[in-house]
């Protein structure tokens, strides 16, 4: 449920980018998912493959999720540590005065398109010469 809502927003954004770039079918979507973003990668992927059937430009798209490590910063001892292991408490000095640097991302990095850009047909012709 939670993943589906996020998938629908991702699809909306990518469909718009496809329209703007004159893309018929997107081949692949590369996303960055933080370890502590609350997205479950397998569920997210399943929701995407269910939802893509109803889209205009993503029906054949693959999805790659690049997982970003959760890293926290301690404002007292200035150290950084792995968030998934130690959560809010700094393992070096025991302080709770910490915040997340990376790991909460749910970003669309880029999309891959198999066909040559329709706006540049002349380049395709040059290749044949």
């Amino acid at each position: 449920m939670h993943e589906l809502g996020i998938v629908m927003h991702m699809i909306g954004q990518v469909e718009r980018v496809a329209e703007e770039n004159g893309v018929d079918q997107v081949a692949k979507i590369n996303m960055e998912i933080g370890e502590v973003s609350s997205v479950v990668p397998d569920l997210f992927t399943d929701c995407f493959h269910w939802a893509k059937k109803k889209t205009k430009h993503l029906r054949e798209a693959e999805l790659e999720l690049i997982i970003l490590e959760g890293v926290s910063y301690c404002q007292d001892c200035k150290g950084t540590y792995k968030t998934t292991e130690f959560a809010k408490k700094c393992p070096y000095c025991g302080s709770d005065n910490t915040y997340l640097i990376t790991g909460s991302e749910i970003n669309i990095r880029d999309i891959e398109v198999a066909d040559p850009a329709p706006s540049q047909p002349e380049r395709k012709e040059e290749n044949h010469v």
Binding site: Q13, M31, E105, I106, I108, E112
Partner: peptide
């Protein structure tokens, strides 16, 4: 062989909603 074109988006899934 078909070329692969990469279109950079680099934004949060929530950007449009925000």
């Amino acid at each position: 062989m078909s070329d692969v074109r990469i279109i950079e988006i680099k934004q949060s899934v929530f950007a449009d909603n925000d």
